[in-house]
Amino acid sequence: MNISERLPTPAPEAVVDYGHGEFRVIKPGGFVRCAVTGAPIRLDDLRYWSVEWQEAYASPEAALLRLRRAGRG
């Protein structure tokens, strides 16, 4: 099972402020959703996000796909 296949913890979706090198939880929850795939990402597993677009990604591939769609990759 990979990170995008894990089920979120039985908690609501979190609201997160994505900063440079760290993120801050604004509204507590157990997970956020990948902006590209829609897959739930447990906060403990969150590694990829965009500060500019304030969105999370389930994998480096998802982040790269987002950049390409925006004409930056």
Rank of each mutant, 00 (worst) to 15 (best):
M1L: 14
M1P: 13
N2E: 12
I3T: 11
I3Q: 08
I3S: 10
R6E: 10
R6H: 12
T9Y: 12
T9E: 14
P10K: 09
A11V: 10
P12L: 15
P12K: 15
A14D: 02
A14H: 04
V16Y: 03
V16E: 03
V16R: 07
Y18F: 15
G19C: 12
G19W: 03
H20L: 15
H20C: 12
G21P: 02
G21R: 05
G21D: 07
R24P: 03
R24M: 09
V25H: 05
V25L: 05
K27T: 15
K27G: 11
P28K: 10
P28C: 08
G29F: 04
G29Q: 06
G30R: 05
G30V: 07
G30Y: 04
F31C: 05
V32E: 00
V32A: 03
V32F: 01
R33G: 07
R33S: 14
R33M: 11
C34E: 03
C34P: 04
C34G: 07
A35N: 09
A35W: 03
V36R: 13
V36N: 11
T37A: 14
T37L: 12
T37P: 05
G38P: 03
G38M: 05
G38E: 06
A39G: 08
A39M: 11
A39Q: 11
A39Y: 01
P40T: 05
P40V: 02
P40L: 03
P40H: 00
P40F: 02
P40R: 01
I41Y: 02
I41A: 05
R42E: 06
R42T: 06
R42N: 12
R42A: 11
D44T: 13
D44W: 06
D44E: 15
D45W: 02
D45V: 04
L46A: 06
R47E: 09
R47M: 10
Y48T: 06
W49F: 06
W49A: 02
W49V: 03
S50C: 08
S50F: 01
V51D: 09
E52S: 11
Q54S: 07
Q54A: 10
Q54G: 08
Q54I: 07
Q54D: 09
A56K: 02
A56N: 03
Y57V: 00
Y57P: 00
Y57Q: 01
Y57K: 00
A58Y: 00
A58C: 14
S59H: 04
S59V: 01
L65K: 13
L65I: 14
L65F: 10
L65P: 01
R66D: 10
R66H: 13
L67C: 10
L67Y: 01
R68G: 12
R69M: 12
R69E: 14
R69W: 07
A70E: 10
G71Q: 03
G71K: 02
G71T: 02
G71R: 02
G71D: 02
R72C: 08
R72D: 08
G73I: 10
